[in-house]
Design a protein around this nucleic acid. Structure first.
Length: 408
RNA sequence: GCCGGGUUACCCGAGUGGCCAAAGGGGGCUGACUGUAAAUCAGCUGCGGAACGCUUCAGUGGUUCGAAUCCAUUACCCGGCACCA
């Protein structure tokens, strides 16, 4: 692959590269010297679950690796004690050593599904930040100015609005920047919210007389709700370890307007093809549902395999397009009370099967016509169901929840 | 330490003595429709076998026939000021 092609590949999906022509320079340098580039990614040790959103950056790193470069993942265990002030108002809680280690292990299990482990090293930034003495810290702080640090949007805003800014928070960008100095990184990746921190790294490297890193920024992937960024805590995420069927279904539930972003950021489908697919969906020459199915298959193939994707697609069509039962239905035993009395109140049954949290909710489901027992819609919320009608029967709640009653 | 503001359901947030199980929005759930678990529209969304009852508005204790609402107090959060320099 020549350099122009490499550049095009690496630029795909990126929101920003700073400086713009820096990446080209770096690639040229690597080719000339034969030395791989060092790509750095800082990770927060608090949230170990990798989802499609966090995978956007990881997949970009993988592209670098496939081109022969080296990745260093920095676990910000030291900086976590400060808490990156970006955006959030509440101070982050401190993590114990054990928590950090446990989270890091979880990361390791997950990131190797995307990264090439042989070209990845993992470092904790407490390794070098933890041993700086106060004199060194002050000297480090002297490399920058208050005016520079206060350029950061959220600091500027908080200052303007008379909100508290801890002095230690001002040190955060400096810590992350120092990581880059220690690692002598060539490229630092991050979400678009990392702009300031990464550029501070670039400036600090210059202060230390190093070749300065460039920042490569990827957009934040919008979650299933179509509004907020994908995150575990908002529940609008697709985890990369989720079962194929779940993953497929979740992809099918994204709003149509996110199709282009998802194709570009989460799959390897070539740009030209993405464009054709998406415009087809937008102009009605292609069924958006089918375009989305294609997307879902691509994604499932990446994290499972082509066969699993095919099967998930089949299953989806079966259950949602043809309104049939899924292949596998979880089985639950018939509640004891039903056996004793020969019949059971529908609402109590739904609670016992775990599809309703209380009889109030169950009553609502029945009244709204969402409950079927063996293809018969239950309409009377007071109905008693005979045991004979229940053994081995499939209970359907809504369009996607199925439970089979144990046949005994 | 002082002064002020705050704490309401999954989340945000209205409510300042009865008409409050508590507006509105978000989220979730169900239905209709279809091109799909998209979009749109409609309903539901404290608990209970349910035109009745029960438990809720940070905790506790009061006032009152009656408290999310008034008083006292405790805890926590947010401001400001002071102390110290």
């Amino acid at each position: 692959m020549d350099i122009a092609q490499q550049l095009a590949l690496l630029k795909r999906g990126a929101t920003d590269i700073k400086p713009e022509d820096g990446l080209l320079e770096k690639l040229k340098k690597a080719e000339k010297t034969g030395k791989p580039l060092r790509i750095k990614l800082g990770l927060d040790p608090t949230a170990p679950d990798i989802h499609l959103g966090s995978a956007v950056v990881l997949r970009k790193l993988r592209q670098f690796q496939d081109l022969g470069h080296e990745v260093t993942v920095v676990i910000g265990d030291f900086t976590a004690m400060i808490g990156d002030p970006s955006g959030r108002s509440e101070t982050r809680k401190q993590l114990s050593r054990a928590d950090v280690d446990a989270n890091a292990r979880t990361y390791a299990d997950q990131y190797c599904r995307i990264l090439d482990a042989s070209r990845t090293s993992v470092r904790f930034n407490s390794e070098w930040l933890g041993s700086l003495n106060f004199h060194e810290v002050i000297m480090l702080a002297g490399r920058t100015t208050v005016a520079q640090i206060m350029e950061r949007d959220d600091f500027a805003r908080r200052f303007r609005e008379n909100q508290t800014i801890g002095l230690h928070e001002l040190m955060y960008p400096l810590c992350q920047a120092y990581d880059s100095v220690v690692l002598e990184s060539d490229v630092e990746m991050g979400g678009s919210d990392q702009m300031f921190n990464i550029m501070t790294g670039r400036a600090l490297q210059g202060q230390y007389g190093q070749d300065t890193q460039i920042g490569l920024f990827m957009p934040l992937l919008v979650g299933l709700d179509g509004v907020q960024k994908m995150s575990k805590s908002l529940g609008n995420y697709i985890g990369i370890t989720e079962p194929a069927n779940t993953m497929f279904g979740k992809v099918m539930s994204i709003p149509d307007r996110l199709l282009r972003d998802y194709f570009i950021l989460t799959t390897d489908v070539p740009d030209s093809e993405v464009e054709a697919l998406v415009t087809g969906a937008e102009q009605g020459t292609a069924n958006p549902r089918d375009v989305k199915r294609r997307l879902a298959r691509e994604i499932v193939t990446i994290y499972h395999d082509a066969m699993a994707a095919e099967a998930a697609d089949e299953e989806f069509r079966r259950v949602y397009s043809e309104k049939q039962r899924p292949q596998e239905i979880p089985t639950k035993p018939l509640p004891a009370e039903a056996l004793e009395q020969g019949a059971i109140w529908v609402c109590r049954l739904l609670v016992a099967l775990g599809v309703a949290s209380g009889t109030g909710e169950a009553r609502r489901l029945v009244q709204q016509g969402g409950v079927q027992i063996e293809d018969r819609k239950v309409t009377d919320a007071a109905e008693e169901i005979a045991v004979a009608d229940l053994l081995g029967a499939v209970v359907r709640v809504g369009s996607r929840r199925f439970v089979k009653v144990d046949g005994g």
